[in-house]
């Protein structure tokens, strides 16, 4: 892009350095935790002076981090399992037509992303306290699923926008019932959007801090809650281990989702 817009080499160099610096700023925090997790030191320092596996070992044996990891992974899985079908149905409906109701529906479905999360958290806390569900798994599930709905909905709507609905019509006119056309025509065609939505809903839940802080607790304490409380009080090298696992997970998801998207576009 921008041909006929060549600039002189000193300016080019300056622009290159600026871009590189911004890229370092964006990437460095995610990258330094990996070597830090292998540090031998009690103190948090980068680069570490000596390497060891002590923090990984401690993490594996910790009765604080391990249960929290299990809770978070389970919660993220059921969140994706809840948010994706719900968002799929809503995206199908709003794509196919709902007339005047489309815009208000759109606003409602994106509300969890526009209302500040702290308000979602204390609001849920208030409602769940009345139902004695604070600290319960269903309470956490409700909060996380609602927060994951906008992400899943946006991805699935974009998927449906590219989907050719005459295929569904063809299936129906050939005698397939609604369910059959759904499961053997629509869903297989949408499989990649569904995978993306599920992975990103999973990450959204894994990443969620504030609702987990207010609604989680006891046996249902998430990784983010343990980490946040730890970070607010002191900087714990153990967190580097979690962060490393986390970053590897994210790198895989981002590569799968966006690598595939690029392939589709080209």
């Amino acid at each position: 892009m921008f041909d006929g817009f060549d600039v002189s080499w000193p300016l080019r160099l300056a622009i290159g350095i600026f871009t590189a610096l911004v890229a370092v700023f964006l990437l460095a925090p995610s990258l330094i935790v990996v070597p830090m997790s292998f540090s031998a030191s009690e103190l948090l320092q980068f680069p570490p002076s000596e390497f060891s596996l002590r923090w990984w070992q401690q993490y594996w044996q910790s009765d604080l981090w391990m249960p929290a990891t299990k809770t978070s992974l389970l919660l993220a899985t059921v969140t994706a399992a809840g948010a994706v079908p719900i968002a799929f149905a809503a995206a199908y409906a709003t794509t196919r037509s709902l007339g005047w109701a489309k815009l208000p529906l759109y606003a409602v479905l994106l509300m969890p992303a526009t209302v500040p999360p702290i308000l979602v958290a204390i609001g849920l806390f208030f409602v769940l306290a009345r139902m004695h569900l604070v600290g319960s798994f269903p309470g956490l599930w409700l909060g996380h699923t609602v927060i994951a709905i906008p992400t899943a909905y946006v991805i699935l709507s974009a998927g449906f926008a590219r989907f050719d609905f005459t295929q569904e019509k063809a299936a129906r006119s050939l005698g397939a019932g609604w369910w059959r056309s759904m499961f053997s025509v629509v869903i297989p065609q949408m499989r990649f959007s569904l995978l993306s939505a599920a992975l990103l809903a999973f990450l959204t839940s894994l990443d969620e801090v504030i609702v987990s802080m207010f609604v989680g607790g006891g046996a249902n304490t998430t990784l983010t809650k343990v980490m946040f409380l730890g970070l607010r009080d002191r900087v714990d090298p153990q967190a580097a281990v979690i962060s490393t696992i986390w970053i590897v997970l994210v790198a895989i998801v981002v590569t799968v989702v966006f690598g595939r998207q690029r392939q589709e576009h080209s």
Binding site: S30, V33, F46, L231, S243, V250
Partner: peptide, 19 residues
């Protein structure tokens, strides 16, 4: 741009506090 966008908020905040 995308990698930090999807990296957990707490991980990034933690790393920045160390840096």
């Amino acid at each position: 741009v995308m990698l930090p966008f999807w990296t957990a908020l707490l991980v990034r905040t933690y790393a920045l506090s160390v840096l």
